[in-house]
Amino acid sequence: MAKSIDVSDLNIYYGDFLAVQGVNMTIRARAVTAFIGPSGCGKSTFLRSLNRMHEVIPGARVEGKVVVDGQSLYGSTVDPVAVRRQIGMVFQRPNPFPTMSIYDNVLAGNRLNAKRMKKGEADSIVEKSLRGANLWNEVKDRLGKPGMGLSGGQQQRLCIARAIAVEPQVLLMDEPCSALDPISTSAIEDLIHELKSDYTIVIVTHNMQQAARVSDETGFFNLKATGEPGQLVEFNPTKKMFSNPDDPATEAYISGRFG
């Protein structure tokens, strides 16, 4: 199920504006890859280009290649909708569908595939996904209640449950804990550790300690200079990144000298 991602010479544009330039990396399957870097350096943009979500903004386009398990994401015959069904995403702020119950929120993605589901099958998907997101025990008695009634951390885990309910190959997380308190954050981090055995996880974070705690490999993004496009400065195993980075800019950022 989990797949690796090869990115080569990726440039990302918004209209004429070059936002991210020349990214090369290989994201390992069944591992957590974290992106760190100052605000506006293009790490979220890059993350979104991995499931073509950046195309939601008019004028966005890419040059270069993103290959998932031998299949190019940007081939002329590839439908972005199909890509997003394979590569799930969790956002910065929890965003359950406000009009739906917890149960329906989990199944939202499965129902899109227009397949008729039997009640028993749907029930088992809901339970499995909610268990996978460490939320089952907290909500099993109120599955029919609105998803918006949960706390922020629970909502975010509901969104993770929704994302894994369709059994994607890759799970992208765009600062999933930035709107959460420390206890919810730690619950999500534990969850990321568990999900790693089944999924390829890519996470963007502003919190360097979080990157150090949860990831196996880390990429550091930075602007070349003010007004220049963002680029990948360094990509290495997390241990090396945080103890002995290759690039002096990485060390300066990690040790808190800028950013």
Binding site: V83, F91, G109
Partner: peptide, 12 residues
């Protein structure tokens, strides 16, 4: 946010 949630699930 909600629209993106739907699109990210692979909604047309």
């Amino acid at each position: 946010l909600n629209q993106e949630a739907a699109l990210a699930l692979g909604a047309t």
